[in-house]
Write a protein that binds this DNA or RNA. Sequence first.
DNA 1: CTCTTGACTGAGG
DNA 2: GCCTCAGCCAAGA
Length: 109
Amino acid sequence: MKRDTLNFFDKVYEVAKLIPYGRVTSYGAIAKYLGAARSARMVGYAMNGSSGKDVPAHRVVNRKGLLTGKHHFDGTNLMQQLLESEGVQVIENQIQNFEKVFWDPAKEL
DNA sequence: CTCTTGACTGAGG
DNA sequence: GCCTCAGCCAAGA
């Protein structure tokens, strides 16, 4: 099998799609699940190509629960509204009850 | 090949 | 608990 053939980006997309509704995860959690805990930055970098895909990038935030990547959506509060639409309370780019809505693929999956 | 940049994280002060 | 520094990895110029 050529799982290694799958680009790091593709793996990130797959995991991102697995994020349940009303839940969020961190780049590091995804990276760790992929076996590249040190490549958390690559996860976010990969999301650069998530545009136009079925990847719910708005459910992916940094370890602080901060919407660091909101600027990559449309440049406004779109990312925040998407999360709130799913039941995730977000205030000033900061996810409330982050520990409750946090979804760890390495544990939940 | 080398240098820079980046949607990050952990450790130290 | 917040701020700053350093480390990591991959892609683009």
